[in-house]
Amino acid sequence: MKYAAKRIAMLLVTMVIVSLLAFVAFDLISGDPATAMLGTAATPEKVAALRAELGLDRPLLVRYGEWLVGFFTGNLGISYSYGQPVWELISSKVLVTLVLSLMSFVLIVAVSIPLGLRSAVGGGKLEGVRDGVRTVINQLCMAVPPFFTGILLSWLFGTVLHWFIHGQFPGFAHDPLGSLGYLLFAAISLAIPRIAMTTRMLRGTIREELQKDYVRTAISRGNDRKGVLRRHVLKNSLVVTVTFLAQTMAEIVAGSIVVEQVFAIPGLGRMLVASISSRDYPTVQAIVVILAFWVVLAGTVADLINQRIDPRLRLGGRPV
């Protein structure tokens, strides 16, 4: 329990650092929100007046401090571009991206775990041939980027088969099932390369584990192949797998930004890209923090799970 408290404290510290870095980064990149809002023809006086109105003339740390206080009191600020509270603007989009990421994650777990197990155990006739075929398919899937698969899937199921209409996301409030169907194709294109990677990782980990001495002991104590795999090898492969899946979650979040563009999904990723180009800092800042939170949370959950599986993995402790 103490471990969990420590880990959550670490999460909070990480989040503060991430948000500060995001704040500094957008201050450093060229382009000014006031100019973006007023257009390049605006007089310097007008720009300066707007900067003062937005509070951009004050020191960075003061602005950051204000933002942080606002964040913890549930006020994410007002969007420069839309003049609306940021939270109102992004709340529906958070759900879309969340559902997309989770769908993709579930797909990865559901497909790669059975595949990885099967390919690790192997054996039987023509194992060599099957192994070769598997490697080729695996590398192919890993090499094709999600945006390309996305374009293909979007063309095939959208343009040709009309399973969904590209660019017309129904929205969860309006049509939950239709929305899930729309997101499924994006989730698949996000998942494919990661399914390949996870399968490969599992295969490697389990194969390595099967070579260990305790497996031989377990067989001599009366375990059959299945029992060894289920009771001995899986538990020891679990820590590596959970860690890997947490990284996968981070990759999904990053990948979703691109895939949302391809499928015209009104999620955080699309909003992020649009807000960066219009220098809508309050919106950008909020989205970056939410996405980062999602990633850091995945890491924290993975650590907590791993610690339950193997108590030797204490924070700062050394494995015996």
């Binding site: 001495d213 002991t217 104590r221 009366g222 001995h232 538990k235 599986i309």
Partner: peptide
Amino acid sequence: PQMIFQDPYSSLNPAYSVEWTLEEPLRIY
């Protein structure tokens, strides 16, 4: 017939308690 192996460091599954390891052959039986 049963066997005792050479290396006591690697021949026990590190993930399980002694109780689990000792009980396992009985559970399988």
